[in-house]
Amino acid sequence: MRFRIYRYDPESIGKPRMQDYEIEFDPQGKKVLDALIALKDGLDESLTFRRSCREGVCGSDGVNVNGRNVLACVTPLEGLKQPIEIRPLPRLPVIRDLIVDMAQFYQHYRAVKPYLINLEPEPESERLQSPEERAELDGLWECILCGCCTTSCPSFWWNPERFLGPAALLQGYRFIADSRDQASGERLDFLEDPYRLFRCHGIMNCVEVCPKGLNPTQAIGKIKTLLVKRAL
């Protein structure tokens, strides 16, 4: 199989470059991550990428494969056009090869106060939540913080420091939507901002790439609706 992979090491002088690799590898049933590991183990130890769970749940290995942001570990090799071009997630600073600096992404996540706020005394047992109330959280809490969505979002490319991006906004809504959370007002105040939220123009790239099938655009829409309702 043939690959073209983005290479960059801050230590060796020179610009980032694309490197071609060819390796005997039966793609049947195998994923992009399997190929990266085979290349690293067999051909070039210096090829550098993140990975952990190898089953699409930890969010470590978001990369851009043939122009699309994906998780390497769940992306089948079969059917990919060769040479398979693998690049780091777009528009984030590259640390080395396929590894990007996610600091900005995490900062936006922290900014939405991604934790339950409820100041009432804790009951003896669980707080009750009906299955319907709980269902409001489905499609929100499953986010694995892989960054595939945010780095595919043109609004984020243009305003990476000020627009929170789809992943952080999805998590912002996850707590607004939680019947146990009492800080919706405060959360909406924070989001009511021309940049943090309103840079989203519903381009839907985020929905298209999310490997967990989540829908940040819809969550963003719901936040906007709540803001409108509140203004009335």
Partner: peptide, 23 residues
């Protein structure tokens, strides 16, 4: 065990729910 699980619920863990609203 029970207090540990209730504590997680209070922290916000999105447990699935029974019809009566319990974990």
């Amino acid at each position: 065990a029970s207090s540990a699980v209730y504590e997680l619920e209070h922290m916000g863990l999105p447990f699935s729910r029974l019809d009566n609203g319990k974990i």
